[in-house]
């Protein structure tokens, strides 16, 4: 271990945050929350520069695509163009709430629609969902769709999932 833990930089009373003044009359939380009030909280008490130096030190203990060649396949280690980061952090595309109205999100919806159309062209499929949060999540979603497809046709006997290398019983 080349860099100590953030908690080891802690010193009672040291602060790394700033918030605007409250502006409204303060209510006594201890009284308000009663049995649910929390008094103990053991989190680091460090300054901003402690945070910056500690995590900068940790970054130096990593190796990534930008450090050099990384011939590992399962997560497809390819170069990620920097322009992607620029675009994804535009406030107009990042500071938006999922429950805002469609009228207010036409830009993002257009972007997702175009991505969907491209993925349909690449995969040769007819429809697509961008909902799954990871590859395995997507595989799970496909299996659920297949299961429901057969259930719709009243075909409930199919329980096996085949692949080129092995066949496992689905649970």
């Amino acid at each position: 271990m080349e860099e100590k833990l953030i908690k080891d930089y802690s010193c009672p009373g040291r602060k790394g945050y700033s918030l605007p003044p409250l502006e409204v009359t303060k209510i006594d939380l201890k009284q308000e929350l009663g049995a649910y009030y929390r008094s103990e909280l053991n989190l680091p008490e460090v300054s901003e520069v402690d945070v910056i130096r500690h995590y900068t030190a940790l970054s130096g203990m990593n190796y990534g695509i930008d450090s050099g060649i990384y011939p590992l396949g399962s997560c497809t280690m390819k170069y990620n163009p920097k322009r992607n980061e620029t675009v994804a952090s535009l406030p107009g595309l990042s500071e938006i709430h999922p429950y805002q109205s469609e009228t207010d999100l036409q830009g993002s919806l257009a972007l997702l629609y175009n991505l969907k159309e491209d993925l349909i062209e690449i995969s040769g499929m007819d429809e697509i969902t961008l909902q799954p949060a990871s590859g395995a999540h997507g595989e799970f979603t496909s299996l659920m769709i297949i299961k429901d497809y057969f259930a719709d046709q009243n075909d409930k006997k199919r329980k096996k999932v085949g692949s080129l290398t092995n066949v496992v019983k689905s649970k």
């Binding site: 535009l90 406030p91 107009g92 595309l93 990042s94 500071e95 938006i96 709430h97 805002q100 207010d104 999100l105 036409q106 830009g107 993002s108 257009a110 972007l111």
Partner: peptide
Amino acid sequence: LAAQNVDLT
């Protein structure tokens, strides 16, 4: 595209 959204800012 970003300008076609009304963001929280």
